[in-house]
Computed example of a mutant assay.
Amino acid sequence: MTTFPGSARVEMVMGMPVSVDIRTALPAREMTPLLDDAFSWLRWVEDTFSPVKEDSQIGRLNRGQTIRQIPELIEVLHRCDELSEATGGWFESRINGVIDPSGYIKGWALERLSRALCNAGAGDHRITAGGDIRMRGSAAPGKRWRVGIRDPRTDLVRKVVFAHDLGIATSGATPIVDPRTGEVQKGLGSVTVIGPDLGVADAYSTAIYAMGPILAKRFAADLAEEGPYQTMIITRDGQEISTPGFAGYSGTEARLAG
């Protein structure tokens, strides 16, 4: 199969391996600083928005200390409030007076990075950080990117998503708190949301997981009817519930094992 030359790099950021895979043919003199800048951006996001770093802006905000007037900080907090309203409070970045935008910030950071790579001429790329993936362009000439969504119980691939331009956010690998009770939600296996903006998909997947099985199915169906965000839920007992539009991104290889 014909492949793109490109380049890929994996580094630890936000406590996890993050992969930036660029398939656009660029000379090394452009590719190396492009990847350097990509990871510099992700580290800046971590240093600014981490709720556990004492000197981050979020950490300082939670302790009532002065913060820098950073446009991105205002943007993120405003967007989190909008997403809280859109999900009926199931996505919540403020719990018991503590601000934690973790359910949105990783997807937002990867979405911003993806747009920056496009603007720099690297339109064929895939960025992966935990359960968040942003892909654009092609994996190889004429070939869509493919992403396997795994069953959290067995680690087998339950569905394969094919796309040239899509954000994919999966929640459930790390604990998610029910914002109304403060307790860890354990009613679902995983929730995957796909759509045009990875930050929004990330927040929706977090919210749907927090809702528990009954409300999750209803909200996912309503979300699919209203716009471009589609959902796949895997329950604790292995049932798979997908909104109709999800099938448009999966092909005949949608049930591969391993």
Rank of each mutant, 00 (worst) to 15 (best):
S7E: 10
R9T: 12
M14A: 15
P17K: 00
R23D: 01
E30N: 04
E30K: 10
F39H: 15
T48I: 10
S56K: 12
G59E: 01
R60V: 04
L61C: 00
P71D: 10
E72Q: 12
L73C: 06
L77R: 09
H78W: 04
H78T: 13
C80E: 08
C80G: 02
C80W: 10
E82Q: 13
L83K: 05
V98D: 02
D100N: 14
D100H: 03
K106M: 09
K106S: 03
W108D: 14
A109R: 00
A129D: 15
I133A: 00
M135E: 14
S138N: 09
A139M: 08
A139N: 03
A140Q: 08
I149W: 05
P152S: 00
R153K: 12
T154N: 08
D165N: 11
D165H: 06
A169Q: 03
G172C: 01
T181C: 04
G182L: 06
G187Y: 05
G189H: 05
S190N: 08
D197E: 15
L198R: 07
V200L: 12
S205C: 13
Y209S: 08
G212E: 04
K217G: 12
A220R: 02
G227A: 09
I233G: 04
R236K: 15
Q239L: 14
S250Q: 10
